[in-house]
Design a protein around this nucleic acid. Structure first.
Length: 397
RNA sequence: GCUGGAAUCGUCUAGUGGCAAUGACAAGAGACUGUAAAUCUCUCGCCUUCGGGCUUCGUAGGUUCGAGUCCUACUUCCAGCA
């Protein structure tokens, strides 16, 4: 069972530590979205330096390229990417919902690769197998998302997600036992051992490959009674933690999380899937019992020139920043803000320099990571409510 | 000086009788939440009660119902010849 220590509680909010084979995650924590085993525009060194504690990669993308066997051969996601810290994988379920030609059956999802059109099928079992091959510390159950706001569709998808969860758990257990039986539990491939022994920080100990953990995913969309039903179902299962999925807007999110997290067992970590582009998501999420977050928003916005400041997001490409020689954000200790001006960033974006995206990504990722860090500290010292109020007031004017 | 050719939005460009005028870039702004995103959308002569109105294609005339498109002259630029 995944170890999760809770250090402090404040209502549903809590401060804790998730102990993964690749190191600890102090929660609440923002997890970097490393879809294709890289956080776009950033090196893992930069990710460490900006304070990131963990990354989340995507099974769908890694299955297509480079193939999960290659990642296994490299010694797993952390070693392959040179991250060497805690890792998550998303199941691939989210892509099912976003691809155009997808056939969902009870067995799984049939789809075509967005790269070359070749046919693929992903099932709860194959997603588990792929995630084990990728070797992240924490896996997500293969779930079914629907775009539709129809209750009937949502209910159907939720029940399918639950059925798939049972199969995920069974397959997860089967793989785990088979690894332990073969005695491969102490090291993985030679490449993996080699990397681990030379790894710097946190993860140098040889972690048993059999230590990989599974989160169930709560669905139910905008229907809070379905959310409650889904939470009860997931809570009844022998899993290591929970993902809360299918959230697409902050509207009603806090209330939904309150319902869900009051049902989920307190002693297991909860990951809010895909939310965190807006600072309020992090505050509402943490306040209502979520421990980790991941979101592509911060890095995507960074690449598109939309940058966080304590006074809200700004578009650095706007003409008004051409002569602005102040730092992007006062009181920010990221590499970007410590060394460069808005005018310089504006210039880099206008000339489409790669460095524009690098510096912007460093800042935006650091921003959400450090806001989440401060949320953790404020829960710890009992000042969360004040911090939330003053932050949001300033950020959203 | 002669002979050809060319002048269209900030730039390059389409356009050979029905045109406020094509495309690209530049410029201005917006979107982005488990990343098919280094992406996508909008604006880009002036005014507008968003129906439309007005003024435009080097300059000045002309032909025509109608001219960026045809004719004449001029101006400037390019190429070749002196």
């Amino acid at each position: 069972m995944l170890e999760f220590d809770i250090k402090k509680r404040d209502g549903l909010a809590r401060v804790g530590v998730i102990h993964t084979p690749h190191g600890d995650i102090k929660t609440p924590a923002f997890v970097g979205a490393a879809t294709r085993a890289t956080v776009k525009a950033l090196t893992m060194k930069e990710m460490r330096e900006l304070g990131s504690q963990a990354i989340l990669a995507n099974t769908y993308h890694l299955v297509l390229r480079p193939g999960v066997d290659l990642i296994k051969e490299a010694g797993g996601l952390a070693e392959f990417s040179s991250w060497h810290g805690p890792t998550f994988t998303d199941s691939g379920g989210f892509q099912i919902f976003s691809l155009p030609d997808v056939k969902i059956t009870e067995n799984g999802a049939k789809f075509r690769s967005h790269i070359d059109g070749s046919k693929f099928e992903m099932t709860p079992e194959s997603s588990m197998q792929s995630q084990w091959a990728i070797g992240a510390d924490i896996h997500m159950a293969f779930d079914h998302l629907v775009k539709s706001e129809s209750r009937k569709d949502m209910e159907k998808a939720m029940h399918r997600t639950h059925a798939w969860l049972d199969r995920c758990i069974a397959e997860h257990q089967r793989i785990k036992e088979s690894i332990m039986r073969v005695g491969d539990g102490a090291g993985g491939t030679p490449a993996a051992r080699r990397h681990r022994s030379s790894a710097v920080g946190g993860s140098a100990t040889a972690e048993p490959a059999a230590e990989q953990y599974l989160y169930a995913v709560v669905q139910g969309g905008i229907f809070n009674d379905l959310r409650a039903e889904s939470a009860r179902y997931c809570a009844s299962k022998n899993v290591d933690g929970f993902g809360i999925g299918g959230v697409f807007t902050a509207d009603g999110m806090a209330e939904m999380l309150k319902i869900v997290n009051n049902i989920l067992p307190e002693d297991k970590p909860r990951h809010l899937l895909g939310m965190g582009q807006e600072p309020i998501d992090l505050f509402d999420g943490a306040e209502n019992g979520c421990d980790t977050f991941d979101c592509v928003g911060p890095t995507r916005m960074a690449r598109n020139g939309s940058l966080y400041t304590l006074d809200g997001r700004i578009n650095i490409k706007n003409a008004k920043y051409k002569h602005d020689f102040s730092p992007l954000m006062q009181d920010c200790d990221c590499e970007c803000c410590k060394n460069y001006t808005r005018a310089y960033l504006h210039h880099l974006f206008k000339t489409d320099e790669i460095t524009a995206k690098v510096l912007a990504s460093i800042h935006n990722e650091h921003f959400v990571v450090s806001v989440t860090d401060k949320i953790r500290e404020s829960i710890m010292d009992g000042t969360f409510k004040d911090y939330k109020k003053s932050f949001l007031k300033r950020y959203y004017n």
